Amino acid sequence: MKNTKFLIATAVLGIMTFVAIAADHIDAPATQSESTSDITDFYAFEGESTSNIAFVANLQGLLGSGNDTQNAAFDENVMIEFNIDTSGDNVEDLVIQAIARDGKMYVFGPTAPSQTGLNSTIATTSTNQLVVDITPYGQSAIVESSGGMMAFAGPRDDPFFMDFGQYGQIIGGNATSFNNPGMDTFAGSNVMSVVVEVPKSMIGSSGTINTWVESKRKQ
């Protein structure tokens, strides 16, 4: 039954086209009124297994603790796309796509995209697919694995550290450097996080890769 639901969902998802929106802690003009597509941070690093690489996208920054985060949800009209360039031309050769549906996060890829650039179609025909329940706020992380891939989706503490008070003092000419330690402006705030870990063998490159993330809204 679980597999049947997955196939039905992917058949519906496949006809959608998405357009990229840039973001960074709600300061990009395109996301001022659409904070559910706002990307706060992107991380790519070697997994606990040195044979894996993890990709992390955080969205919807500045969620407070309690009800603010508890009521937050992934936007079902927004797709998160991890782009991977293996040839050094700054054009994506592979993508990993993630989109929420009915309390679950569907992950497709790594796979070659049907088109590059700002527009995307969900790669429902990808050999690599995974679905994971979105972890509710305050609960232990729900992680699913399939074919060597692992995925998580849900609220997490914002890992970004920035002392905006001191930054304002520096910009205003009242200070020349940050304090050590500084005051973390993001302490106690949360983000909606998507984590996908894949074997390096799926990337098809043992050398350097270029990688970036986009949020793309359905058109």
Score class of each variant (00 low, 15 high):
Gln219Ser: 11
Pro113Lys: 14
Lys5Cys: 09
Ser205Lys: 15
Pro199Trp: 06
Thr121Gln: 12
Gln32Glu: 07
Ser189Leu: 07
Asp68Leu: 08
Arg217Gly: 10
Gly109Thr: 08
Leu130Cys: 08
Val196Arg: 02
Val191His: 04
Asn77Asp: 14
Asp158Phe: 04
Asn210Ile: 14
Gly172Ile: 04
Thr208Met: 15
Met79Tyr: 05
Ser126Asp: 06
Arg101Trp: 06
Gly14Thr: 00
Val132Ser: 13
Arg217Pro: 12
Val56His: 01
Asn119Leu: 15
Gln139Trp: 03
Gly64Ile: 02
Glu197Trp: 00
Phe45Thr: 11
Asp41Arg: 05
Ala72Met: 11
Ala30Val: 05
Ile96Glu: 02
Met183Asn: 14
Lys5Val: 12
Phe108Tyr: 12
Ser37Cys: 06
Ala153Arg: 01
Asn90Glu: 07
Lys5His: 11
Asn90Gln: 09
Lys104Ser: 11
Val143Trp: 00
Met183Gly: 07
Gly64Asp: 03
Asp27Leu: 13
Ile26Lys: 03
Phe164Asp: 03
Asn210Arg: 05
Lys216Phe: 06
Ala23Leu: 08
Glu76Met: 05
Asn190Arg: 08
Gly66Ala: 14
Thr116Met: 07
Ile209Lys: 02
Asn67Phe: 06
Gly173Ser: 10
Ser35Arg: 13
Pro181Ile: 05
Val95Pro: 09
Asp85His: 07
Glu214Trp: 06
Asp38Asn: 14
Gln60Ala: 13
Thr185Trp: 06
Thr40Arg: 02
Thr69Leu: 11
Val191Met: 12
Asn83Thr: 06
Glu214Leu: 15
Phe82Gln: 06
Ala11Cys: 08
Ala11Lys: 10
Ala72Pro: 02
Ile84Cys: 11
Ala9Leu: 09
Leu62Gln: 05
Asp68His: 03
Ala9Asp: 13
Pro159Ala: 13
Ile39Val: 11
Phe55Glu: 07
Ala98Arg: 01
Ala151Pro: 05
Ser87Arg: 14
Gly173Gln: 11
Ser33Pro: 01
Thr211Asp: 05
Glu92Cys: 10
Thr111Val: 15
Leu7Glu: 14
Asn119Gln: 14
Ile21Lys: 02
Val107Trp: 03
Gln219Val: 09
Met192Gln: 00
Glu48Pro: 07
Gly117Ile: 03
Lys218His: 02
Pro159Ile: 10
Asp102Pro: 00
Gly173Lys: 10
Gln166Ala: 04
Ala28Arg: 02
Ala54Glu: 04
Asn3Lys: 14
Ile53Cys: 12
Ala23Asp: 15
Gly154Asn: 02
Gly147Glu: 03
Ala23Glu: 09
Asn3Tyr: 05
Ile134Asn: 12
